[in-house]
Simulated scan of single mutants.
Amino acid sequence: MKKNLILLFLFAITAITFVHAQDFEGTVAWTMKMEVTDPQMKAQMEAADKQMKDPANQAKMKEMEAKMDDPQFKAMLESNPQMKAQIMNMIKAAQGGGGLSAMIPKGMNMKVKGTNSITSMDGGFMAHMSILHKGDKDITYSLDREGKTYSILPKSTDDKTQEKVDVKVTKTSETTKVLGYTCTKYIVKVTPKDPNEKMTAMTQNIWATTEIKGIDFKSLARQRMGNSQQNIFYEQIDGVPLKIDMTMPQGNMEMLVTEIKKQSIASSEFDIPAGYKEVAQPKY
């Protein structure tokens, strides 16, 4: 259940993270909403919510939180950053009530400078993670801020992925305003050619504007997301997406830009922080 959610969010995040800027420097803020429609996933999440709110589990989490002050336990966690991050996330989930409300991000924030970008989630089960894309080196990293670790997201080596799916991009005459910019609606449908393929059918409504200069969205078509076995097909879209509605069997997601702010950002913001250790990429 959580694996499906992770893949859904990773796909959405990378679809935005790999936007290349030409001369844009500043920040972009997004809000995110998700509705789970898959009955099995919804039941699992409701069960997790009930379990997390159980007084006995709440008491255990409080005990675990108190134990964090024990010098010996603290030393053990410092030697295992990933375990420390997992425990901290469990404690935060318990404090927030757990379940669906604790798992879904409220939004995400991007910092962009030229071809470099870093994206962080606002809340949810990935709140401690950031995606750092170094366009000058063509390398993408996953940063765990709580565990102080990083991993390199590999490029897909599956050159036949495009042969496994049907992709249809339709430009419509429908428009809407987002932050005062006129956006045109594109409908993107991705379906596996073989129903036995472990690939998720997906429909996206992408609202893009050509009124923002300095950001090259078409470069996104050349990017691929690690091991998700999904290519990103946006070469037929003109402009910068400001709103995305995504429909998948697991649920529906809406992403909306709420602020675009041009400002100077230090180059050091796009470096891996000192003291971070490299670890293997988590397998989803």
Results as ranks from 00 to 15, higher is better:
40 Q>V: 11
233 F>S: 12
215 I>S: 01
227 N>P: 06
265 I>T: 12
14 T>Y: 10
58 Q>F: 00
176 T>M: 14
80 N>E: 13
63 E>R: 01
151 S>K: 02
284 Y>E: 03
116 N>S: 09
157 T>Y: 02
259 E>V: 03
38 D>M: 06
7 L>P: 05
39 P>V: 10
132 L>M: 07
193 K>V: 05
16 I>Q: 12
13 I>Q: 08
149 T>L: 08
279 V>C: 02
138 D>Q: 14
159 D>T: 14
96 G>I: 05
22 Q>K: 15
241 P>T: 04
4 N>P: 01
79 S>P: 02
43 A>Q: 15
29 A>K: 15
106 K>N: 13
245 D>I: 06
210 T>F: 07
230 Q>R: 08
207 W>P: 05
40 Q>C: 02
136 D>H: 02
223 Q>D: 10
153 L>P: 01
274 A>L: 00
76 M>V: 09
268 S>E: 11
174 E>M: 06
59 A>T: 09
10 L>W: 08
120 S>E: 11
50 K>V: 08
221 A>Q: 04
59 A>P: 00
157 T>Q: 15
202 M>T: 09
132 L>E: 04
137 K>Y: 03
156 S>F: 05
247 T>K: 08
171 K>G: 02
29 A>G: 08
177 K>C: 02
160 K>Y: 05
102 A>I: 07
89 N>E: 15
270 F>I: 11
2 K>Y: 11
72 Q>M: 14
77 L>W: 06
196 N>D: 02
216 D>K: 00
18 F>N: 05
142 S>L: 15
111 K>Q: 14
251 G>L: 05
102 A>M: 05
181 Y>K: 14
142 S>R: 10
152 I>V: 15
181 Y>F: 15
266 A>M: 07
194 D>V: 04
148 K>P: 04
67 K>D: 12
